[in-house]
């Protein structure tokens, strides 16, 4: 049995990742917030686009799901598209779904909402609400790709919540209007209020693809079963409803946000770089 001293958080301070993650989320949101303004008002085209396709100078990024859908529905391959997808795919192969937890604007909004809710309720953990089978995210991905190939147009590219945030910001900056499909972002955030990160957990095809790419990822959260106190805090803090102490952080679903590592009083969870 661990003593009370060992259980106290002062004993072994866990690594802090949330401040860095929130900083990254905020910076990436600020990036897509100011880019349309710099482009339209000052004609500074150095940074361009948002998370469907982003260019920083001559470094181009293309979201893997959008790129794959474009290739599948148009049945043609365009070399710059492949090059643009290279870095995001490599990132997903090495780190898993880190885009979702560290960059995605939906994550930024959800985290902000969580903090606003915390101000009112003063409860550290919100109950989970609706739980679906975890594997629904694969069905979302497969269904989305099949639907896109059937109607011959990539569906997710114009209905993807992270992309829509960028598009709406651009519409607001350039044309002083909002497009109606932006309501999807509101629906996703409402789902987050009902049940924590419900869209991200079960329905986001992009998250599904990044998770699929990250099945054999190198960066994983590894539980130390000897040090674990079975307190269940990590499970409560996990935004995806995983159970890290049971080793679910090693599965494809984990997005390496590090919140379980931070909450763990026994420092039983750690980021680990897997060697080959």
């Amino acid at each position: 049995m661990p003593t009370a001293e060992e259980q106290s958080p002062m004993n072994k301070p866990s690594a802090r990742y949330t401040p860095f993650r929130l900083l990254t989320l905020t910076l990436s949101f600020l990036l897509i917030l100011v880019t349309p303004y710099l482009n339209s008002h000052y004609h500074l085209n150095f940074v361009q686009g948002w998370f469907q396709s982003l260019s920083i100078g001559h470094l181009w990024f293309v979201s893997p799901l959008e790129g794959i859908e474009s290739i599948l529905t148009s049945r043609s391959v365009y070399a710059p598209l492949m090059v643009g997808m290279f870095i995001p795919v490599l990132l997903a192969l090495l780190f898993g779904r880190v885009f979702c937890s560290w960059v995605c604007p939906i994550s930024f909004f959800s985290e902000t909402l969580d903090r606003i809710i915390f101000l009112f309720t003063r409860k550290k953990f919100r109950p989970f609400g609706i739980r679906l089978p975890k594997r629904s995210i694969w069905f979302a991905l497969i269904g989305e790709i099949i639907l896109a190939m059937t109607i011959g147009a990539p569906i997710f590219v114009f209905l993807s919540p992270p992309g829509l945030v960028g598009r709406e910001i651009m519409m607001m900056t350039l044309f002083k209007t909002l497009a109606m499909e932006g309501l999807i972002v509101a629906v996703v955030l409402l789902m987050h209020l009902v049940s924590k990160r419900m869209f991200c957990r079960y329905l986001c095809p992009l998250g599904g693809l990044l998770g699929l790419l990250g099945i054999k990822r190198r960066l994983v959260v590894v539980p130390d079963t000897d040090a674990c106190l079975n307190c269940g805090l990590c499970q409560k803090s996990c935004p995806l409803g995983l159970d890290p102490e049971a080793g679910q952080s090693l599965s494809a679903y984990c997005w390496n946000c590090g919140s379980c590592i931070e909450i763990c009083k026994a420092s039983a969870l750690k980021f680990q770089w897997k060697d080959i």
Binding site: S40, G49, Q52, S63, V157, R167
Partner: peptide, 26 residues
Amino acid sequence: LFPSKCIRCGRCVEVCPYGSIRPLDI
């Protein structure tokens, strides 16, 4: 081929210095 190839990233809209290009809505 246009609707299947275009990923709606809006970069052409953003880069257009004259505001000629507009994205379509839902």
